[in-house]
Amino acid sequence: EVPFKVVAQFPYKSDYEDDLNFEKDQEIIVTSVEDAEWYFGEYQDSNGDVIEGIFPKSFVAVQG
């Protein structure tokens, strides 16, 4: 069931425009499960802007 919160276990950096880049310990709200390997989610950056994109499930852990 979406949405749910995950926390980055590792930093994720990608050159693909659709990917969500983040640092370790970033909290991310997952709004869609793309497939067995990928989530789609969002978070607010330090400027208060909402950043969204896809990212690999293996880089995050589900909270709770």
Rank of each mutant, 00 (worst) to 15 (best):
Y43S: 01
F4I: 04
D25R: 04
V7M: 06
I51F: 14
E1C: 15
P11Q: 09
D18V: 11
E27H: 07
A8W: 04
E34V: 15
F55Y: 00
E34D: 09
Y12Q: 03
L20P: 01
F4A: 01
F55G: 01
D19N: 14
E37Y: 14
V33K: 05
E34T: 13
A61C: 14
E52R: 15
D45Q: 07
D45Y: 04
D15L: 11
V7C: 08
D19G: 15
A8I: 03
V6H: 01
Q26P: 02
Y12L: 03
I51K: 15
K13A: 07
D19L: 07
T31N: 05
D18F: 14
F55M: 00
S58H: 10
N47M: 09
V7G: 01
G53I: 04
D25W: 11
E34S: 11
V60P: 01
G48S: 03
K24R: 09
V6S: 02
Y39G: 00
D49G: 08
E52G: 09
G41I: 03
N21I: 07
V33N: 09
D35K: 08
Q63C: 13
F22Q: 01
P56C: 07
A8D: 02
E1R: 12
I54A: 11
D18E: 13
I29E: 04
V33F: 07
T31F: 05
S32I: 07
P3T: 04
F40H: 10
E27D: 06
I28T: 02
E27L: 13
V2S: 05
D49A: 11
F22V: 01
K57Y: 06
D15I: 12
Q26A: 03
V33R: 05
V62T: 10
V30I: 03
D35L: 09
Y12H: 07
D25K: 04
K24C: 07
N47W: 07
D19C: 14
V6P: 01
N47Q: 08
F4D: 01
E42I: 09
K24Y: 04
E27A: 06
Y43M: 05
Q63F: 12
V60I: 05
Y16V: 12
Q63N: 09
D49R: 14
D18R: 15
Y39P: 00
N21P: 07
D25G: 15
V6F: 04
Q26E: 03
Q63T: 12
Y39H: 02
P11M: 08
I29T: 14
V6E: 01
V6M: 01
I54P: 06
W38G: 00
F10G: 06
L20S: 00
V62M: 11
P11C: 10
F10S: 08
S14R: 04
D18G: 15
S32T: 07
N21V: 07
D45K: 09
D45T: 13
D15R: 11
G53T: 01
V50L: 13
S46H: 12
F59K: 07
Y16R: 15
T31P: 03
G41M: 03
F22L: 01
N47F: 09
S58W: 11
D49E: 12
E42F: 15
A8Q: 03
D25E: 06
E17T: 11
G53M: 03
F55W: 03
L20G: 00
P56S: 03
E34Q: 15
V62G: 07
Q9N: 08
A8E: 03
S58K: 14
E27M: 09
E1Q: 12
F55S: 02
K13R: 13
V6A: 04
G64W: 09
I54T: 14
S58C: 15
F55I: 02
S46P: 10
K5R: 12
F40K: 11
D35N: 14
G48K: 04
V2L: 10
N47P: 00
G41Y: 03
V33A: 06
F40D: 00
V30M: 02
K57D: 06
A8M: 02
Q26H: 03
I51H: 15
Y43E: 00
D49Y: 12
D45M: 10
I51A: 07
E23M: 07
P11K: 08
V62A: 10
N21L: 04
G41H: 02
I28K: 00
G53W: 03
I29M: 13
F40L: 08
V30K: 00
F4C: 06
P11F: 05
Q26L: 02
K57N: 09
D35H: 08
P56Y: 05
F4M: 03
Q44E: 13
V7I: 13
Y16G: 15
V7K: 10
Q63M: 14
E34M: 15
G48Q: 02
Y39E: 00
K5G: 04
F4R: 01
N47K: 08
Q9V: 14
K24V: 11
Q26T: 06
I29D: 04
D15F: 10
V62L: 14
V60Y: 03
I54K: 15
Q44L: 13
V2D: 04
I51P: 01
S14Q: 02
A8C: 06
V7L: 06
L20Q: 03
I51G: 01
V33W: 07
P3R: 06
I54N: 12
Q44Y: 10
W38H: 14
E27N: 05
V60M: 01
T31D: 02
L20K: 00
Y16L: 11
V6R: 00
K24I: 08
G48T: 02
A61D: 11
V60R: 00
D25H: 09
A8R: 00
Y12W: 06
E42W: 15
D35V: 05
P56H: 07
V6C: 07
S46A: 13
Q9M: 15
S58V: 10
F4E: 01
F40S: 04
G53S: 01
Y39A: 00
P56W: 06
E17K: 14
E17L: 12
I28H: 00
K5A: 06
D18S: 14
E23H: 05
S46M: 11
W38M: 09
V7R: 08
E27G: 04
E1A: 11
G48V: 00
G48H: 04
F4T: 01
I51S: 07
V60C: 06
V33P: 03
E17Q: 12
E1H: 13
S58D: 11
E37G: 09
Y43G: 00
F55R: 00
V50K: 14
E52C: 15
P3F: 05
G64R: 06
E23L: 07
E1M: 13
I51R: 14
W38N: 10
N21Q: 10
F40M: 08
F55N: 02
K24P: 03
E52F: 14
S14N: 04
P11V: 06
S14E: 03
E42P: 01
E17D: 10
V6D: 00
A36N: 13
E37M: 10
E42S: 13
Y12T: 03
F4L: 04
K13N: 10
G48I: 01
V50R: 13
K57C: 10
S32W: 09
Y39D: 01
D25F: 10
